[in-house]
Nucleic acid binder design. Sequence first.
DNA 1: GGCCATTGTTTAAACGTTTAACCACAGGCC
DNA 2: GGCCTGTGGTTAAACGTTTAAACAATGGCC
Lengths: 343, 343
Amino acid sequence: MATPTIRDVAREAGVSTATVSYVLNDSRRVAEETRQRVLQAAQRLGYRANIIARNLQASETRLLGYTWRPTPPDQFNPILDQFLNAIAQAAARHEYHILTFPTTSIEEEIAIYREMVLTGQVDGFVLSNTNLDDPRVRALLEIGFPFVAFGRSNPQWDFPWVDVDGVHGVVLATQHLLERGHRRIGCLAWPEASLTGQYRLEGYRRTMAEAGLAVDPAWIMRTENTYEDAYRTACAMLSLPSRQRPSAIIALSDLMAIGAMNAAADLGLEVGRELAVVGFDDAPVARFLRPPLSSLAQPIPEVGERLATMLIDLVNGRQPAEPHVLLKPTLVVRASSAFRYTE
Amino acid sequence: MATPTIRDVAREAGVSTATVSYVLNDSRRVAEETRQRVLQAAQRLGYRANIIARNLQASETRLLGYTWRPTPPDQFNPILDQFLNAIAQAAARHEYHILTFPTTSIEEEIAIYREMVLTGQVDGFVLSNTNLDDPRVRALLEIGFPFVAFGRSNPQWDFPWVDVDGVHGVVLATQHLLERGHRRIGCLAWPEASLTGQYRLEGYRRTMAEAGLAVDPAWIMRTENTYEDAYRTACAMLSLPSRQRPSAIIALSDLMAIGAMNAAADLGLEVGRELAVVGFDDAPVARFLRPPLSSLAQPIPEVGERLATMLIDLVNGRQPAEPHVLLKPTLVVRASSAFRYTE
DNA sequence: GGCCATTGTTTAAACGTTTAACCACAGGCC
DNA sequence: GGCCTGTGGTTAAACGTTTAAACAATGGCC
């Protein structure tokens, strides 16, 4: 009843364990007749090689570690599901699996990385949500352990990453709004410390400049990525005198976009007619909002796919073909910004 | 530079590997002086026992497997984040970790379970989203491998599960609506095949019966758990003649509740004044909707916590103290149903 | 017939732990 | 002095693979 080992198969086939291993892994020439005997014996016993034993021998785990901070109740994580799935799927294709573990702070996260490296629990790590001078990146570079990151960190540091081009995304959004007739466009941005926030804001600034439009400083307001903050800040922006008030708002996340939409509604402004709103992330719920929210969709499946294969390359000592990948988001236009705006 | 093994520590401390192991695991009396020498040697070398080797020796993996179907684009998964975190956290407390892997169908899922059991890749499984006569439950019972399920399946089958009491949840919701003056209450339900759907609907039926109210068959409409279906179905329900039309709708999920809210809006009915809507799951977005959506919150952290500890008990051959746990959801009342209704 | 190459198989070490079984020694007791 | 007990340590097997190295048998060639 206990699961059969390679020894059982060897006995059953009247052959040594080495031969069994060679047959099953196709790693050496074996006489056809013997081959068949072994295969049949394995089949009969329902034998499958034990993974831990194999891993010990190969001194690898075929596990990739991933952790993320649990989402606080005033936010939501629109991509975890897709992201996790994408990396797990790509990993599975190479017979790797994802090991998830919870962490509550960056410090704890780093401590656990160290511990896992030392105990040999995983072969590499996937980081997400990196920031400027991210201490996790620094730590892993210093340890010299394989990892890849969803997001950039410090141009000086050489490590493999995949990121979504925030500049390009917001350029698309801004151009789209300009096309629809908007001239006063506001941006609900993140604190300056956020690298992702910097890129996205840059897209806005650049496009406005190229269009020859001056940006009123009151049109750029920074807040934390929470609904409440975004709501309050949008209220402030929309309470500007009517000649100064933006007719369109780009929010750096869908969560904040929802805050803006609700602020507008509470101030008696109709989103989709008097005010345009565009978000970022294309959260599943964006389609279901009233009006449906335009948003920048990140190619999360491809991000995950690329990260996983890059990491597997690294783990196996291969230099990834493209260690820095910048993918383009696509703008999904919905009713919140589809209308033509006229003064 | 290579990570040190127990042999290195033994050499460094001038002692055998057995002694090192005994000291580090506190599994036998060792003279204090030797103990210190070993501890210091280990410290000096930064030694940590290799997990794979330990696992091979103990023939365990300290991994718990979990898989879920990626959410299709017309739905969302409001609890994955929390759930995964809860089980990972509880598991970590006992030095277990979660292994995630993707599957695209129930059949594939079962095949992978079989494979993982045979190759000894995990010590047990966490199932979620179980249904009546769930084939996964049947397969794992037949294999005789440790698992726990979030959700019930077949009263005849004896297996450990944790579930949220759907009957009680919808009883709460229905009572709440009755209290606010509603008499014609509709229910957006799931296809009959859904066990969870059966329980929830039962809560509605029971409460209506206890209140002595006859349920018009047109008030119960079944659809798949998608936004589009829910929207269409809600339109149908709200297009009933005004004396027959429900003044309140209980939807079996927040996704469907959103469909109902939008249907109402499109038919010119004001949710929160003319129509009450209550959902189920308390998705993060429920708070941000307009009006904010009342919903039944599932105690997901506790579900995950219980499941993980139950599974770890099982894996270690202990009978879980409570193998069947039914937790109560709580009703979160928000503006979508807080108002008092009068004809 | 001796030598060599080729083919097919086995032997045994290795991966890094844990742990049962054994051993050495000291002290106490008769 | 012999025996027993307790203490503190070591030896070696085991977990289940993979794989380098050794070995045996066969056939071809000079």
